[in-house]
Design a protein around this nucleic acid. Structure first.
Lengths: 101, 101
DNA sequence: CGAACATATATCCCTGTGGTTATACGTCAA
DNA sequence: TTGACGTATAACCACAGGGATATATGTTCG
């Protein structure tokens, strides 16, 4: 889900903006997104569904903010992949050592 | 490019398999992918284009292996996003401290 | 209440892309 | 050389999903 959600450039840009500049209203996000307000709302809906943002209603505006914790699975996945790589590398080292004598 | 490439479940599964089990032939990958061989070749083409895998020709088979280095931008991006979050958190702390006296 | 505003939802369109089958290309074996 | 094999490419189909416009919902203000 995370990869898919972050795959779209427009959506990722919105998320990055929320990370960089903190809480933003839909209007503020729309004004710099290059797409229509409904499109932004849709993207925010998907980001929210993925747990990447949360919303806070205040009067007639909705403020969105990034939920960094949602990125943890991504870091875990990346580390896991890197881990597999290193494990295989260690195996190779072991193999070479055993071949040594 | 990375997010988009890793967004597809089938393609990501192929990449994970290459990470876990090292170099594999197209045939081996196909047999556990659940999709046709041409589909696998297509996915491998995109993974290669994204720098996530490399291929090695040996007779009539092609061996693919994961290029973990390609994941670095992903880790960097994630760290950068987390960094922005912490920076804003620090700003908040500073603000609270200044409000203290 | 009624009008302007902020956002969300509905509907539709259109492109991108993941899937298939068919086939071409290169390689090994007989 | 011929045929079987492994992989890549071509051509096509179906559908997901990102975009726009129109409109509904909810909120503030006069």
């Amino acid at each position: 889900m995370l990869f898919r959600t972050l795959a779209d450039p427009t959506r990722r840009a919105i998320f990055e903006r929320l990370c960089r500049q903190g809480e933003q209203t839909v209007g503020a996000l729309t004004s710099q997104s290059g797409v229509s307000q409904p499109a932004v709302s849709k993207h925010l809906g998907l980001l929210k569904q993925a747990g990447l943002v949360r919303d806070r209603h205040e009067g007639r505006q909705t403020h969105y903010s990034a939920q960094l914790g949602a990125l943890a699975p991504l870091m875990d996945w990346t580390r896991e992949m890197a881990g597999f790589w290193e494990a295989r590398f260690d195996d190779l080292e072991d193999l070479l050592k055993r071949m040594d004598h």
